[in-house]
């Protein structure tokens, strides 16, 4: 995935059973953002792979004051890339569960 300067990782082990997963996001390279992020904290949140979109979560992060609105696309892309990887792994590792 492209290096967006925003890192997103699983915050829990993915067993492929739940549609909702915990993710953790933090800024690795502030210079890649247009606005100044709130701080250097890691933001943990749950994401429903079936019902939600990365754009929704990114928008909620902007509205919650974590990022400047001009960075909504880069945050959404960072989440989208990680979610795509999780779904890719699920389809290959747990196809029967799916």
């Amino acid at each position: 995935a492209e290096d967006t300067g925003v890192r997103v990782e699983l915050a829990e082990e993915d067993h492929g059973r739940k549609s909702s997963i915990a993710l953790r996001l933090w800024v690795e390279d502030p210079k890649k953002l247009k606005g100044k992020p709130k701080d250097n904290g890691a933001i943990e949140f749950t994401f429903d792979l079936e019902k939600e979109t990365p754009d929704d979560v990114a928008q909620e992060m902007i509205e919650s004051g974590f990022f400047h609105e001009s960075d909504v696309k880069i945050v959404a892309k960072s989440i989208r890339d990680r979610v795509a990887l999780i779904q890719w792994r699920r389809e290959r590792i747990w196809p029967i569960v799916q």
């Binding site: 690795e28 890691a42 949140f45 909620e60 509205e63 919650s64």
Partner: peptide
């Protein structure tokens, strides 16, 4: 470590914790 919780009006909960130094890229 200190945790901060932010709840968005749509109901989603964000929990903020310090990022370990080892995970921050040097700039």
């Amino acid at each position: 470590s200190s945790l901060t919780q932010v709840v968005h009006s749509a109901g989603r909960r964000f929990i903020v914790s310090p990022v370990p130094e080892s995970r921050l890229r040097e700039s």
